[in-house]
Design a protein around this nucleic acid. Structure first.
Length: 486
RNA sequence: GCGCCUCUAGCUCAACGGCAGAGCAACGGACUCUUAAUCCGCAGGUUCGGGGUUCAAAUCCCCGGAGGCGCACCA
């Protein structure tokens, strides 16, 4: 069966419903349309046949009569999943279903593989993730989530453009992995005979653009971290990073709460949303609290980066937080915070003033050099954003890099190394700058009420499928003698 | 990496030591207004793979595979 190279569609299913919805049962409009889509239900009935045709806008019924429909017998044999284009008059059937009364029609694609249970669909999670094309048809929620994510990114872009930010693209192949504390993927460039790392953060390149005179830049793109998979972690994930010259982390807090609240309005219709059955109010102004304050709230202990290291280590041990010998007070405080305070946070909080020890790219706090002007936005107990007043001083940056490099030498493979290229850029002058990163996947999970990151990633990372000889298993019912290819 | 759970027809699931089943899909047929159409008929299986226990294994045990959840990792 040959299929045409194109089909002239004149109306979407939703348009048919909107324009001819007024027809009463048994009424014929006299208007002809051409619709196209996938057969989701088929009800052949002797000299009559009905089919539900679904396109990206919705569904419309096809109504065929042996006396009026070309190739009626073939039409009555259409299978679930077949793609069809049909031309005919818009009518409402006697039983009240708005329909296209099919005159001519054409098969646009045959579904050789069965489409799953027509009522219960496909629920096997592996099939849903590995064969998303099947999931998207079988489960409307999957389609909705993907659309929601698309809208999220679109509205985010629009709101940033409105604020004067310029969207840029920076390299994904990095000669030195930097900008985050993470294991990179390594790859090899043959002609250059050099290793490259898939980026773990775009941060350093973006700040170089600020040095270059782009006072407000952002990038929405994929990051790659060579880590374990979990319901909240995918090896490749999407972030927004933005930099704003002349701004500090207080400005970034205002930006985050306004942006997230606006997006909630756009996507959920309200800043009061519900996540996993619990109400969550995203309206500004969000609570601001220092890490030390939250630790004291959670533990009752007045701990800070100035607590003597031994005392902090003992307190951590008492709280059941594992301690490693190389950790200073800053790392210890962070660990205690993450284990005791963070999980119990629900309403949005800006957790501010992170220890300098664990924030090598953030500027020291204006009132305490052991701290930085850094915050994380925690919503529903999860990190949603990370931001700081950027470290602009090349000398301090070199010092921080060297501290990181020492940790790297000491065995922390995720610690940074000295990035001379970046230091050279800073020496050309980076003005005071506020920087911000937001995990798009996490944000999408929040708005989609999803607990698994794979629900908001179209094709999540999976262990490679082993399909023999590179071919999938044969389609059930396919004639083994006539399969294409070899 | 560790722990728990899961894997049965194309899909969704039952059978839980005693003949592998149902609904839907498919296939053949009936039906001129269906709505998960209905009715009749037919077919569909390496019960994830391998090994073991047993008169008898989808079921119990061991090894392996795939997946889920949790933990660890993830500033």
């Amino acid at each position: 069966m040959t299929v045409p190279y194109r089909f002239e569609q004149t109306a979407m299913a939703a348009e048919v419903a909107a324009r001819w919805g007024h027809l009463s049962a048994g009424e014929e409009s006299g208007d002809a349309v051409a619709v196209a889509g996938r057969v989701m239900l088929a009800r052949p009935q002797g000299r009559l046949a009905f089919a539900e045709l679904r396109d990206s806008s919705g569904a419309v019924q096809l109504f065929a009569l042996a006396s009026a429909t070309k190739d009626f017998d073939e039409f009555a044999r259409l299978r679930l999943g077949d793609w069809v284009g049909a031309r005919g008059e818009v009518v409402r059937t006697k039983r009240g279903e708005l329909s296209v009364k099919v005159g001519e029609w054409v098969l646009l694609a045959e579904a050789r593989r069965p489409f799953g249970d027509k009522w219960r669909g496909v629920t096997d999670v592996e099939t849903r993730y590995r064969q998303r094309e099947v999931d998207l048809w079988a489960n409307p929620q999957s389609r909705t989530r993907l659309l929601m994510r698309s809208q999220l990114v679109r509205r985010m872009r629009e709101r940033l453009w409105d604020r004067g930010f310029v969207e840029v693209e920076t390299p994904i192949l990095h000669p030195i992995p930097g900008g985050a504390h993470a294991h990179p993927f390594v790859t090899r460039h043959r002609a250059l005979d050099a290793d490259f790392y898939l980026r773990i953060a775009p941060e350093l390149y973006l700040k170089r653009l600020v040095v270059g005179g782009f006072e407000r830049v952002f990038e929405i793109g994929r990051l790659f971290r060579n880590e374990g998979l979990s319901p909240r972690h995918n090896p490749e994930f999407t972030t927004l990073e933005l930099y704003q010259a002349y701004a500090d982390y207080e400005d970034m807090m205002a930006l985050v709460e306004e942006l997230v609240a606006d997006l909630a309005l756009d996507l959920c219709g309200s800043t009061s949303i519900s996540y996993q059955g619990r109400p969550l109010d995203l309206a500004p102004r969000w609570r601001r609290a220092t890490m030390a304050e939250l630790v004291e709230e959670a533990t009752g202990l007045p701990l800070s980066v100035h607590t003597p290291r031994d005392e902090l280590a003992r307190a951590a041990g008492d709280l059941g937080v594992p301690v490693e010998p190389g950790w200073g007070s800053g790392k210890l405080l962070l660990e205690v915070y993450e284990k005791t305070a963070e999980p119990s946070l629900w309403e949005p909080v800006f957790v501010r003033d992170y220890p300098a020890e664990v924030s090598p790219l953030a500027r020291r706090h204006r009132s305490d050099p052991e701290l930085t002007e850094r915050f994380e936005a925690v919503v529903a107990g999860r990190e949603l954003a990370n931001a700081f007043s950027e470290l602009t001083d090349p000398d301090d940056q070199r010092t921080r890099f060297e501290e990181q490099a020492a940790q790297h030498e000491a065995g922390d493979e995720e610690a940074m190394v000295v990035d001379a290229e970046y230091l050279r850029a800073l020496e050309h002058g980076l003005p005071p700058t506020g920087g911000l990163g937001i995990g798009i996947d996490r944000l999408a999970m929040l708005f989609a009420d999803a607990t698994n990151i794979r629900e908001v990633i179209t094709f999540p990372t999976m262990r490679p499928e082993r399909l023999h000889g590179g071919d999938p298993e044969p389609a059930p019912g396919a004639d083994p003698g006539s399969s294409e290819g070899d």
